[in-house]
């Protein structure tokens, strides 16, 4: 028996990492559903907690893992293009509140970036961390593509995006009650704008109207950030 050949095959074939990643994700989905689809038990976060110890314990460099799964990563491009469809399905809602949507999109979107980066700046955080924070409020596939583009640390950006989404879900109803927000459109739009996909999924529980405005905000802010952020950073 040639155990050495076996071990070298197992650690180098993409199959190992593909099987590990898909199984971990499946476990994540299972736990998420068992926990009553609580946002805190996101399948991706559970999968990450299962994959990380294995990759670190096996002393596999991140580059080796990433290259084995490069074809999964490839689908982020088509998935970003795919976001045109949910945006298209909700685009008619723009007509109802054109001025409020446009103003909130620009001012609120800018506020979300500047408040987070501003706090990091006050703490004297590193340039790389601040750059990785700029994408915190946009949906993950667009966030990853923009983070790569502006030279941020992609994995940090993903972490910040995921935590922002969770916090948005946690704060949502508290904030709306505290500030006495009346319009479901404003609730949904701010959730989608600040907390992207997770915010949108929690807006579904408010009302159908809130969900539509959340999806609209997520799509519009994703596109707008992807267009304006690389240009803004280029001139800074």
């Amino acid at each position: 028996m040639n155990t050495e050949a076996l071990l070298s095959y197992v650690s180098s074939t993409p199959l190992t990492w593909l099987i590990l990643t898909i199984s971990a994700y499946k476990v994540g989905v299972f736990v998420y559903e068992k926990m009553g689809k609580n946002a805190l038990f996101q399948p991706m976060i559970i999968a990450l907690l299962l994959i990380l110890p294995v990759v670190i314990y096996a002393k596999i460099p991140f580059q080796t893992y990433f290259q084995s799964l490069h074809f999964l990563h490839f689908f982020l491009g088509p998935a970003t293009v795919a976001l045109a469809l949910p945006l298209y399905k909700n685009i008619a809602y723009i007509k109802a509140y054109f001025v409020p949507i446009t103003i909130t999109l620009f001012v609120g979107g800018l506020f979300a970036i500047l408040s987070a980066v501003g706090i990091l700046y006050l703490f004297g955080a590193s340039h790389a961390t601040m750059l990785s924070m700029t994408t915190k409020s946009i949906t993950t596939p667009i966030g990853i593509i923009v983070a790569q583009d502006i030279g941020a640390i992609v994995s940090l950006s993903i972490g910040f995006i995921a935590i922002t989404g969770l916090l948005g879900v946690l704060f949502g109803n508290v904030v709306f009650k505290w500030l006495n927000i009346k319009s479901d459109a404003a609730k949904g739009f701010s959730l989608g704008l600040v907390a992207h996909a997770l915010g949108t999924s929690s807006a579904v529980e408010i009302s159908e109207n809130a969900a539509a405005f959340a999806a609209l905000a997520m799509g519009l802010s994703g596109v707008l950030t992807a267009i304006l952020l690389p240009i803004a950073i280029h001139f800074l």
Partner: peptide, 14 residues
């Protein structure tokens, strides 16, 4: 999430 995971694992370097 499955397409995001390969990049997310990069957190091990951070």
């Amino acid at each position: 999430p499955l397409f995001i995971l390969p990049s997310a694992v990069g957190i091990m370097t951070q």
